[in-house]
Design a protein around this nucleic acid. Structure first.
Lengths: 340, 340
DNA sequence: ATGAAAGCGCTAACAT
DNA sequence: ATGTTAGCGCTTTCAT
């Protein structure tokens, strides 16, 4: 079977109807100067001839491709998948498509991807910065090509972009206040690398909340590392080896909290009585764990929708704003049930 | 700040170097007829001038856009997100991008999306059919526009496409044999709607496995409905009301199994002793549940990779094949520990 | 080894 | 109300 057939263009229609190409073009676009009968005729013929406009030609002519590029560390994480879901739904309403790119949390890949998108593949970009990125020049390069940028969740200073974040500081602050309200005082923190905005802000919230209770976290209270289940397990093991254990552990990621909790449970630590645990992100699995895991909801899908709307607004000439969503503390079994 | 700047084209470079546009074009493409010095000069100048090829123009000229469209019910499900992850990685290696579309499991949305992609937005399509789809003409319409199609997981007869599936029949068959080996005999099945290939095949596997034990499932043993946690809960409640309860429940989805299991546990049913449970898909949460949920792994990322490679091969002129992966039964606590 | 020129399919001034 | 024409930025024959 033949794979390629000749495509029908507006000129094929024009020839059949003995009219000009522009009349066909205009009729198809409901141009006011075209008579109703002509419009009907052209549309009918177009349909019969199985005509489809050639997007590439339209794009070239209009200098616009109705496509939004999305760069995330990895699609296969609920947080990002949900955000993309929101983005897709929102931009779709306005006739835009979504081009997906994964940075794999690597700086080099992120740079490469941005270079590729700069070639007029997209009208705008929505991104969440790779964990491995410490230099942001590549993001600013988008501007040189007239491609507006919205960052969500993982943002950074010095990038000309709109931003959508949750108030990570406040989320962390609430977690720690909540733990204190449970009577916990020796609260450790598993933090992410501090060059990443969200992890830095959560760390600050942690410190400030403790400060209100007159507590100054010691150096050994804070761990810094990758955001993985394995690191959580390793950290729990380290803690188990300490003579002076914490009574609570606040992890900047649900995956770390998961690993830590399972490791603690395996070693007979009672949660939350001996060790309260809180994570961050409110991953779907949190509520399925026993004990269920307290966390902070970031409204990922909503973040995606907001980012999308912000970018579309920008494409319509509006200027940047920064949206900060208020995160919600979700108290579950792993951090006790005393309501503050 | 100015958003749009004038883009630099090959003619800008040509003017600066006092050469023709075609020489620039050829130099940039390493055309053999261009001298080494000229190539170096052009490339250097292009870089200095911050030149980026205009993808839309290249696409129009070449009649190809190096983009693959992916249509899935929903991105925000681990199975599909993983598949997309695999697709993206694979096509990326060959210089293709990925355009994402969600059908939301709705026939109308799926049709709309295919119509949109047919306008020369993509060189090929990878899709998993919406649950709401019963007529497949829209998929065959892609062929008329010279757009090859690969279906994965949810496939259907009568569509001209390559396919990547797991052997759902065999997966289900293994589940039921395993349950029988645990001494279970009164095994109920929560099935999906039977017009969907994967659910139909799993149902068949269920029936045939039972048959080998001389068991003919009665009508009331089989439930048909949506693949949601809520339906699982409702089904468990129905079962609890029965005078003659099953000793095992095989669900065609982990989400249904999850809902059912939680509801059973809430009502004091001992799992797996009184009620063994198996799901399908091996969602990440399965191993986190207590008891952990037995399931069937479908190798979603691998399916995505295979589908991608198949499509790329097709774009290189190869003909269709059908790949059937062998699914793996993952026995966990919810279905007992007697190894067969 | 390089240049001139046509044209991919469409849109939109500028005619009429 | 409809037609003519000039590109959008690039590739590629054909010429030199």
């Amino acid at each position: 079977m033949e794979l390629k057939r000749k495509k029908v263009s507006i000129y094929d229609i024009a020839r059949v109807l003995n009219i000009s190409g522009s009349t066909v073009s205009r009729a198809l676009q409901d141009h006011p100067a075209i008579s109703t009968e002509m419009k009907a005729l052209v549309k009918k013929t177009a349909k019969e001839m199985n005509y489809k406009p050639n997007t590439m030609a339209v794009n070239l002519k209009r200098g616009k491709c109705n496509t939004i590029g999305v760069i995330v560390p990895n699609i296969n994480r609920n947080f990002f998948a949900s955000a993309i879901e929101g983005i897709e739904e929102e931009v779709n309403k306005m006739g835009y498509d979504v081009l997906i790119c994964q940075s794999q949390d690597q700086y080099e890949k992120e740079k490469k991807v941005i270079g590729s998108l700069s070639q007029g593949k997209v009208d705008g970009v929505i991104a969440s910065i790779a964990a491995g990125t410490r230099d942001y020049a590549h993001f600013n390069s988008l501007e040189e090509y007239g491609i507006p940028l919205v960052l969500f969740d993982r943002v950074a200073e010095g990038i000309n972009a709109g931003t959508v974040t949750v108030d990570d500081y406040r989320g962390a602050y609430r977690v720690v206040k909540h733990l204190c309200a449970q009577g916990k005082r020796r609260i450790f923190h598993y933090a992410g690398f501090q060059h990443v905005s969200v992890w830095r802000n959560r760390y600050k919230g942690y410190v400030d909340a403790l400060k209100e209770y007159g507590i100054e976290p010691e150096k050994e209270w804070v761990f810094v590392g990758n955001i993985t289940r394995e690191e959580g397990e390793a950290t729990a093991r380290k803690i188990l080896r300490m003579k002076n254990r914490p009574d609570a552990l606040f992890c900047t990621s649900d995956f770390v909290a998961l690993g830590a909790m399972l490791e603690f449970l395996k070693n007979g630590v009672r949660i939350p009585e001996e060790m309260a645990i809180c994570g961050f992100a409110n991953e779907p699995f949190d509520e399925l764990l026993r004990p269920s895991l307290s966390s902070v909801d970031q409204f990922s899908k909503k973040m995606g929708q907001q980012a999308a709307r912000m970018l579309l607004d920008r494409l319509n000439g509006e200027s940047w704003v920064n949206i900060i969503l208020d995160p919600e503390l979700i108290v579950r079994e792993s951090s006790g049930m005393i309501t503050s």
